[in-house]
Amino acid sequence: MSKLQNHTHDGQAPGRQTRDRSEPRFPGGPVADPAGSHHERRIRSFQPRRSRVTTGQGDALQRLWPLWGFEIDGHGTLDPAEMFGGLPVVLEIGFGMGEATAQMAAADPGTGILAVDVHTPGQGNLLGLAERNGLSNVRVANGDAIILLREMLVPGSLDGMRVYFPDPWPKKRHHKRRLIQPEFLTLAAKCLKPGAVLHCATDWEPYAEQMLDVLSAHPDFENTQEDGGYAPRPAFRPLTRFEGQGLDKGHVVNDLLFRRVG
């Protein structure tokens, strides 16, 4: 169990317990900031979300994290193929509650999915889905994907990368927080094999336009679409509940599929 402390001062009632925030919320589960302050910081493109975890999600985190969880701590190198017993591996950055990830894993058991997020309920939910559906080709990584790409992945070790519905950071002053930037693409290119596809999707049209501009200008990527535009939604990308809600509101969803060249 997490360490608990009894407080009898500072205005708290005797016997009231609070959790030591430096320790995991779930024994053996993901930690709040696996890389700590030991590695160069950049502007984060995500906001850690430690919202309410259900009993089932918490149970999955406690039981399954030691088996299928991975902390992005910035220490050592990782060869994804070894993690998945030699399977080709796709990195998914930001998976929400994991329903689409689980569907893609079930539809393509010959591909390993290394799914990265910082959303604790989603981590637990995906682990539970993987167990219930017998998915041995899913691993869940906790932490900043930038640190994973920059410091931990073996170059040329990924067979694909997926970034579905990243935070659009709609306010102009926050655009620098958007994930799809030239610096990110350079890191992604280093980790992707030649011919591997980076697949992005967003329902925020101004962000889609920026994605298309930045990807088209990057020397390490080429558009898979002959017309240089957006791609039809591939059959392998499930229509998520979040996406359906956006479509109901009149949002336009754009897919971008760019191939690693060289």
Rank of each mutant, 00 (worst) to 15 (best):
R21G: 10
D117H: 02
T240I: 02
R42F: 15
S51N: 11
R42H: 15
E243C: 05
L78M: 14
V214P: 01
Q5N: 13
D213W: 05
T77L: 09
L185V: 00
M104I: 05
L114G: 04
H119E: 10
L78P: 10
A188G: 11
L127T: 05
A235Y: 00
P14I: 03
A201N: 04
F236I: 12
F165W: 09
P155N: 09
V90R: 14
L78C: 15
A141E: 09
F70M: 14
I72N: 03
L91N: 07
E82Y: 01
P232A: 13
D117F: 02
I72C: 07
W65A: 08
T77V: 12
S37C: 04
E40P: 07
A107K: 06
L126Q: 08
P234W: 04
R150N: 13
N142P: 02
V154K: 15
G98D: 09
G11A: 06
M97D: 12
R41F: 07
A115W: 03
D117W: 01
S216T: 13
M83Q: 14
E82V: 11
N254H: 15
N223M: 04
L129E: 10
L61W: 08
Y164W: 14
P14A: 12
V252T: 15
R177L: 06
G156I: 02
P219M: 08
A81H: 12
H175F: 06
R233S: 08
I147C: 13
P234Y: 04
G69Y: 08
G29L: 00
R50T: 10
A188E: 06
Q12R: 14
T77C: 12
V214W: 02
R19N: 05
G29A: 07
E226C: 03
H175P: 00
G69D: 09
H174A: 08
P27H: 11
L187G: 06
G262D: 12
R21K: 13
I43S: 11
A107Y: 00
Q47I: 15
Q62C: 11
K176Y: 11
R132F: 01
G195I: 03
H175L: 08
G56Q: 15
G94H: 08
I72Y: 03
R19A: 15
L148G: 05
Y207W: 00
R139D: 03
E82G: 11
R25I: 10
L257K: 13
L135V: 11
L135D: 06
A235N: 10
I147A: 12
L179E: 05
E183A: 15
A102W: 00
R260E: 07
M152A: 05
P206L: 06
D10V: 12
N142R: 13
H7Q: 12
M211W: 11
T54P: 02
R139Y: 08
E243W: 01
R42V: 12
S37N: 14
P48N: 01
